[in-house]
Nucleic acid binder design. Structure first.
Lengths: 191, 191
DNA sequence: TTTTAATGAATGAATATTCGTTCAGTTAAA
DNA sequence: TTTAACTGAACGAATATTCATTCATTAAAA
């Protein structure tokens, strides 16, 4: 079928990312157990067997989705931001801005957030996630600067990420839902 | 085993509610597909077959859990509250207080909130749930009174219930997690 | 014609459900 | 009081069903 080695490779990559992309929404919405390979294939518009040309098993497919959701780059970006010599309030605003922007123009971002959060809830040990820790640091800084509301930083970080999680969930389920604003996110932490 | 008709009935009811209670946590945490009847029975500490003496099918068991989560009484309580001639701020405070109280002393309440919210997300038509509507009314009142922050009431109600949902989720998954405070809930809406 | 991707019916492992048996307790006859 | 017969709940092995995975076949490109 493929013209050249190159094109062949390209086609395989396209199909693989198509499967990944469409499956991730399915898994995020329905969870692992409620996602049936048959339904999934129908939803993607391919045969059941095709999935197995690209992934060894349902488990492996899900594993790849997990990996994609766990974005190392995002964490390091956050870490850098947290170390800059600027007010905590500005940092929070930057984070809120980035999240809202990504949610609005990358549909997959909502899936990533959803899957990541579900994983965190399921593995209590993972719960104190790296992303969490960074936000906590910034909150502590902000409390010293009196620009962030008083209270347990872990708890406040929770409130913040929780709200982000919810917006992601809603985007996943509800068509044309109103996106959260950065003002709302900021207000959660403002003193 | 049973002495009288009465006692027999009592025993059946006890067992049924035991199954319901213990299953609901399982289902809320793992979802329908990932809940295996075998595991569930082991977790409850009964034989697999026993479940089928009380429920026709896994599906029906889940259905009953759903029903239990959908608490009509709670809605009418809220409706009454919303109509009282008192400031919106007071109403919100009462609601927050009640939620925090119930979350802290009725472990099943977290399950109910979780299941109910999942149902709402899955059925877009149910999303504008009665409970939502009532809170929206109160928010509108509060905005007139200038005690509630400006913004789309639906959106604000969302933020509020979302935060409640999250706390419930955390209680379900995380042992000894810090419970949300009524102050935090109130702050979400305060002007 | 050969090669490769895609397919979906066939397979079997996992899991929901059924059903014959056990067991604990009660009743009532001896 | 003892014992035999009865009751219905509980059990879990056996069976039915579902669903992930495989593979023989088709279709299409080279």
């Amino acid at each position: 079928m493929p013209k050249t080695e190159e094109q062949c490779k390209q086609m395989r990559e396209d199909m693989k990312s198509k499967i990944l992309k469409m499956s991730s929404v399915y898994f995020a919405k329905n969870g692992f157990g409620d996602t049936k390979i048959g339904d999934l294939a129908k939803h993607i518009g391919i045969g059941q067997g095709t999935i197995y040309l690209y992934f060894k098993s349902k488990e492996e497919l899900f594993e790849e989705i997990r990996k994609a959701a766990d974005n190392e780059e995002e964490v390091s970006k956050l870490k850098m931001l947290s170390k800059l010599p600027i007010p905590a309030k500005t940092k929070i605003n930057k984070i809120s801005e980035e999240i809202v922007k990504r949610l609005s123009d990358d549909a997959e971002y909502a899936v990533k957030i959803t899957i990541r959060t579900q994983l965190m809830l399921e593995n209590e040990d993972l719960y104190s996630d790296r992303v969490y820790k960074v936000l906590e640091t910034i909150i502590k800084q902000g409390q010293k600067e009196k620009s962030i509301v008083k209270g347990d930083p872990t708890y406040l970080a929770d409130l913040y990420w929780g709200t982000v999680f919810l917006s992601a969930l809603k985007m996943l389920y509800i068509n044309e839902c109103k996106l959260i604003t950065k003002e709302t996110l900021n207000r959660l932490l403002e003193a």
